[in-house]
């Protein structure tokens, strides 16, 4: 039996080995030459973002969740290195998808404790993007997987998709304009899964105005859209403001 095997392998032509090996190396080098390693790209993006120590951004927030009726509101977003981020609504309450974290890109790339894996190319809004998956190395991390869609040329994250242990998957789509040099988006669309919302009518004592209730869509995706109109960058943000 062993002999048989040995014999078989022995008779594989040497040229085949060579072809296999060469093509492997060619493939490897070509990919390395054409595309920077994933980790490196992520680092570059991070470096760009690191130019921003803090900012105060003003903008408008639109909440598009089936069961939340909130007007478009003026917001102020505060950021301070390394990971302090807060969105505040002017004159009113705000319901923000859990973890302001997710809205701020810097925090996605906060630690070095991940493995970046290349996952090919794609397009977002007709722009070519590199798809990179970040896998946290720590067991305790809330984030299971983050997929980044990076505009390699501009070093901007066009889209990020984060899967968490408890809160499902969040998508974040970013559009850039004036503040692209700082890596800061003009618009962030944040989509996520929502759970059912239901309170017993006995508790709320509903006013029934007789109008027919529209059927709620089955798709339970919620969306929060923030359009930033201005950033004040690196002018200092106190801890008080961000509280």
């Amino acid at each position: 039996m062993n002999y048989q095997l040995y014999r078989t392998s022995y008779f594989v032509p040497r040229t085949s080995y060579l072809v296999l090996l060469t093509s492997y190396f060619i493939l490897l080098t070509s990919s390395l030459l054409a595309q920077a390693p994933a980790a490196e790209l992520v680092k570059k993006v991070k470096a760009k973002l690191d130019k921003v120590n803090d900012y105060v951004a003003t903008g408008k927030m639109k909440t598009d969740v089936v069961f939340i009726k909130a007007p478009i509101s003026n917001i102020k977003a505060y950021y301070k290195k390394p990971n302090k981020f807060q969105v505040k609504r002017d004159g009113g309450l705000s319901l923000l998808p859990k973890g302001g974290v997710s809205i701020n890109i810097s925090s996605l790339l906060l630690t070095d404790d991940y493995t970046a894996i290349n996952a090919g190319n794609g397009t977002i809004d007709n722009l070519p993007v590199r798809i990179i998956k970040l896998l946290p190395l720590t067991e305790t991390s809330e984030v299971v997987l983050t997929t980044l869609y990076i505009d390699e040329k501009a070093l901007l994250i066009r889209k990020a998709s984060t899967t968490t242990k408890d809160n499902g998957t969040y998508d974040m789509q970013l559009s850039f304009g004036k503040y692209a040099d700082w890596g800061l988006p003009d618009k962030v669309i944040f989509s996520f899964n929502t759970k059912d919302y239901k309170l017993p009518k006995g508790v709320t004592l509903e006013y029934d105005d007789g109008s027919k209730k529209p059927e709620l869509p089955k798709n339970k995706k919620g969306k929060v859209e923030i359009t930033y109109s201005a950033y004040v960058i690196n002018k200092g943000v106190s801890d008080e403001m961000i509280k």
Binding site: L95, K198, L199, E206
Partner: peptide
């Protein structure tokens, strides 16, 4: 501050 009006199937946020 703003008012949260919690109905049976929706939450209304008022400025």
């Amino acid at each position: 501050d703003g008012l949260i009006n919690a109905k049976s199937d929706q939450i209304i946020l008022l400025n």
